[in-house]
Each structure stands twice: as structure tokens, then as C-alpha cells.
Write a protein that binds this DNA or RNA. Structure first.
Lengths: 339, 339
DNA sequence: ATGAAAGCGCTAACAG
DNA sequence: CTGTTAGCGCTTTCAT
């Protein structure tokens, strides 16, 4: 375990640091260093377990071979899974990943971005609060490699990998319509997030396109930090109140879970009395009673493509990878929407 | 966004780099630098958005203010949640965290440990595969700060924060016994993990202590990478076969979920035909039908304490924080165990 | 084919 | 109170 440095191996082998460095970075051949010398260096390094100090290397190279990941909350299974795929893909390209959670707070996110820049990350993957237009613009102007995931800035041209929120929700709503539900409620989160707006638009479009009209009373957007408490009222009002909704679209997995919890407490039968459907999926949605029909997001593709685009940017290979990706969700039909 | 360096601000203000560095590191007073000069420096830095290069700083200081986190799989909600708490706590102390998943593979874990060391992390938090005794020992001998979480090495004296696996499972089993279940099955994962061994011992102890004997046929340990497939057979055998078990203890949340899935497929009623109980909890276990009684692990405390112990180690403050922590689980009684 | 030397940006003795 | 100087460990130009 005792540390050995570049110069140690140079001394031991009676060579220059240059030679050693070159060989260790696989540039021995191109610098015409004798096969024999190369072998000696490599062997010695292996034998003594040489491990370059990445801070020194990074300082010298001006890069860290690290990518930064900023998400609202790493303990949200959705982001955790994305992180997982990002990690795997990043490693393929030789990058490490450092993560931080913004807690959906723009100020924190801003701080995180700069903190990561100080840390000399080579690129950034951000699931932004969408309230940091300014800093995203700065990144862009500075030509710093980054890609947005999950959420993007419609007004800024950047790399991004998102999901078709509009289409996904439209599809969900049509599924409900197809199951002869006519009074379809919509429970979402009060937020400026474009994703959430798109989900509402998708819902509305499905209705109008099919000749139904959008009933504002059927729409309820809850406080993001207080949705659990507000859910009870929302459900009562929508399902038991005068509206008598016969289905509800939940725009996130945790809303669907929370909603179902309340429905159960109120003794309301799903799907006979009310059908429910969820945008985004939870691992146990198939075990819940009734199993919840949900639109599954392609987290794997999201993570993979984000890294690919990012690394491409970093390397400036400019392989012309398409860098504005809108992925499709997949409807998993279970029992919560009836027949 | 244009980068500004320490020397830029020194030049601009006609000062030395030293002065600037000192002030920026809050050591202005102790070095008797005039309040006025300090203010000028601070103001200028703020105004020009000075951000020190952490690689340079780290190289110079010999530390990175980063802690490394190695877990089996960051997309497992259990580890994701721990990561979340670790992140928060680490930030309190001024540390960033870089994570990597070992995929429960000792070789990968080993590689990760060294890769993180190269990255000059100041300390490590590891949920180890428990197959890297050698490297853990090396860390210890090298006096490198680290703390084990979730899994530890019984034979090595280290810092660790784990959970009372034995007690938790004993408690679960007794709960079943208390509900008049007499033929209690046990489904776990085939593994060398001490945690899993302890869970089995807890189960067995509960039985013998209460005058029942351990029936090997009631115990089934599945392949970690193939448990989904093997689950069907296990359930069939145990519940429908000659054994006719009337309860089963699952040692992880994913086993419980998988087991319940099979139970449902086979049309077996829970809890009337068979009760189930889970070590460790999933967010939706209260929504599942029936809601699953589970032993909840204190992920928050686990993350928090791990960081506290680690930072204490790093700072060598030696505050004599107790550094071998065994936390208690909490049984959440729901409906899957009957009355 | 190999080595000397400068430099990445910052910190820290030490000397004034 | 401030500045000079010497590193931290590695990469890289430029001679040789």
C-alpha cells in the first residue's frame, strides 16, 4: 500500500519521468520508445501497483475525467435508476461521476453547478429545476459540455434527453377514454416544470381531440411539498364531491401512490368506482391492489444517451450524434383502469 | 464566466498571492492582514466570481474534500436512500461525494476502492461485498479513513454502521409466532453476507427459543442473480408442496415483492393461507394487497452516522465518537401476517 | 529514443 | 502585515 510515484519508477529504472509517463499513457509507440523499455516500465508499474494521482494528472491535463450529475433528489427511484445507468455508461468511457441533489431548489442547483465546475468536472448532466435559465445560458456560452435530462429549457438550444410527456399523457388519457371513462380527473403538482405542463396539455388534447371538453374542476394541481396532505381533499372533492369523476390521471408515481392510499382510506373501489393511471412507474405497481396501469419511462436509454452525447461533446469528436432526444414512454396496462 | 485566477486577483489588487490565498481561506485574521485589505480581496473575489480550482487546491493540500461511496447498486432504493442522507450530511461538512456501484462483485469493488484512492478521496464509505477482506485490511493498515455500512467484516476491527439483522429477524419471526403461525418458512438469498446469515440465525433463534424446531425444508436460499426464476419453485414447494408452510419470512424487500408476485400468480391468499413478512421495506408496501408487514431499516441514521464517523476520522479530531454502531430496525405491522 | 525543464493553480514556510 | 519561493505529481514541449 505504500505510495509509489512516477519519479520513483523513473529512478528505479534509470529513466526519465517523461519516458515513464509516455509509456504509461500508451504513447510509447508513437514516441518510439523501445519495446523493451516499455515492457520494463509497464512491468515495474504493475508489480509495484503504481496508481497515478488523479488530482495531479487532472491539474496538468486540465481535466478530471469526472462528470457531474445534478438531480432533484437521488433518493427518488426515478433519478436513482437514471444515475445507475449514467454510472455504467460513464465508466465505459472512463469517467467517474459525482452527484448532488438540488432538492428542486434553483439556488442550490446554481451553487451545485459552480461547485462542480470548481471541481473541474469535464461535463455536466443536469435534471434541472428549470429555473436557472441564466446559468444554463452561461454554461452554453462558455461552451462547457453539458446535457439536460428529464427537464429542458424550451427556449434554449442545448443538448437534452427528455421524454415525450405530452404524447405519454395523451396516450394514457386515451386509454381511459377507450375504457369508456368519461369524467376524467387530472391530479398533478403545482409547478413551472415544462414536463408537467406538457402532461396537462396531453391530457387536454386527448379530451378535446375526442370531442370532450376540458372541465377545470376536474383538474387539481397540488403543492409539491404538501401533496400528501392535500391529496385527501383532492380525492374527496373530485371523486366523492359533486364532480363524481370516474377516472384520474396522476402525473407522477408518487402522486399515484399517494392517491391510491387515500382512495383506500376512503373505501373507494378501484377501478369499479374510479380508474387510476400513472405517469411513471414504481417497482411495486404490479403488486399493488389493483395493479396500477402506468406509463413507463425509459430510464436506461435516458442515462445512456445522455452520457453518449456528453462524452461526444467533451471529446469534441462532433460525431453529429443527434443531441435533442425525445424518448417515448411505454404504457404498461394493468388493472387499475378496468376493462 | 471567464475564468479568473488567484494571481489575477493578486495582480489587480497589487497584492501577493499569499495574501489573497490566506484571506480567501479565512486565515486573514490569524495572519494579521488588515481588515481593509481583507475586504478588498473578498469584494473583488465576489465581484469577479472567483472560484478556486479544486484540483490545484487538492493537489497542494493533499486532499480533495470529497468522499467516495461504494455500494452494490445505486438504483436499489435502499442504497439510493442511504446515498441521499450521506450526501446531505457530507455537504454539511463541506464534502462532495462520488459514488460507484460494485454490482456485488468483489473484483469490481476492489478496483473501485483503488480508483477512488487515485482520485484522492479523503475517505470512503463502503457497503462491501464482504469478499475483500484483504483490501479492507490494507486500508486499515494504511490508516486510511473509511467506514463500512450495511455490511461489515466481523473479523476486522473497523468503523461500521450496520443494522441489527439478528434481532430484527428474530423479532419478525416472533411476530409471526405471536400470530399463531407454526410452520414458518424462510426465503433468503444464497450468499456469504453476514447480514443474511444473521437474519437466518435470528429466525432460527426465535423458533428454538420458543420451543419450535428448525425445519431445514422450510428454508430456501435462492441464487442472487436468478431469484426471480427460482422464486416460483420455492413458493410452490414451500406453500403448496408437502410442507404447507403457513408463513414465510423474506429477508429482503425485493424477495418479498417477488414472493408476493408468485403468490398472487398461484392464487394463494395472503394472509389467510400464508402470512408474509419482509426484512426491509419498499415505499409501496403499504399499498400492496395485502399491505406487507416489514422491518424498516433506519437509512437516515445509517447515512448520517457513517458520515459523522468518517469526517471525525478524517479530521483526526478523535472525538471518541462511538464507531461501531448497530442500529435497530422497526417493525411496521400491516396486514400480511393476519391478526 | 530519451531527458531537462517548464508549467498546471494553489498553499505554506520563511524571510522580511 | 506582505512577498518570495518552493513544492504538490503529472504532462509536454523542445532539445539532444
Amino acid at each position: 500500500m505504500k505510495k509509489i510515484f512516477l519519479k520513483d519508477i523513473a529512478q528505479a529504472l534509470n529513466l526519465s519521468k517523461t519516458a515513464v509517463s509516455l509509456v504509461l499513457n500508451n504513447r510509447g509507440d508513437e514516441n518510439k520508445i523501445s519495446k523493451d523499455t516499455q515492457k520494463r516500465i509497464l512491468d515495474f508499474a504493475k508489480k509495484n501497483n503504481y496508481r497515478p494521482n488523479q488530482m495531479a494528472r487532472g491539474l496538468s491535463l486540465g481535466k478530471s475525467e469526472t462528470i457531474g450529475l445534478i438531480v432533484p433528489n437521488i433518493s427518488d427511484i426515478f433519478y436513482a435508476r437514471i444515475a445507475h445507468f449514467i454510472e455504467i455508461k460513464a465508466k465505459e468511457f472512463g469517467y467517474n461521476v459525482v452527484f448532488s441533489s438540488s432538492n428542486e431548489n434553483a439556488a442550490i442547483e446554481k451553487e451545485l453547478i459552480y461547485s462542480m465546475l470548481n471541481r473541474q468536472v469535464d461535463g455536466l448532466i443536469i435534471a434541472s429545476t428549470q429555473k436557472n435559465e441564466e446559468d444554463i445560458l452561461k454554461l452554453k456560452e462558455a461552451n462547457f459540455p453539458f446535457v439536460l435530462i428529464d427537464r429542458y429549457y424550451p427556449d434554449i438550444k442545448t443538448n437534452y434527453v427528455i421524454v415525450d410527456n405530452f404524447g405519454g399523457t395523451k396516450n394514457m388519457t386515451e386509454h381511459l377514454l377507450g375504457n369508456r371513462r368519461r369524467k376524467i380527473g387530472f391530479i398533478s403538482i403545482k409547478s413551472q416544470l415544462d414536463a408537467l405542463l406538457q402532461r396537462r396539455l396531453g391530457y387536454e388534447q386527448a379530451l378535446t381531440e375526442n370531442g370532450f371538453k376540458v372541465e377545470p374542476n376536474y383538474i387539481n394541481e397540488l403543492d409539491p411539498f404538501d401533496y400528501q396532505d392535500e391529496m385527501k381533499g383532492a380525492i374527496k372533492d373530485m371523486v366523492q364531491g359533486s364532480h363524481k369523476v370516474d377516472a384520474v390521471v396522476f402525473t407522477t408515481h408518487y402522486l399515484a401512490a399517494s392517491g391510491l392510499r387515500e382512495l383506500k382510506l376512503l373505501g373507494i373501489e378501484v377501478p369499479s368506482e374510479v380508474a387510476i393511471i400513472s405517469f411513471d412507474e414504481l417497482g411495486a405497481f404490479d403488486l399493488v391492489e389493483p395493479p396500477i396501469t402506468a406509463s413507463k419511462q425509459p430510464v436506461d436509454a435516458m442515462g445512456n444517451e445522455a452520457v453518449e452525447i456528453l462524452v461526444n461533446e467533451i471529446d469534441k469528436k462532433n460525431l453529429k450524434i443527434e443531441n435533442e432526444r425525445v424518448l417515448q414512454t411505454k404504457l404498461l396496462i394493468r388493472k387499475s383502469c378496468g376493462v
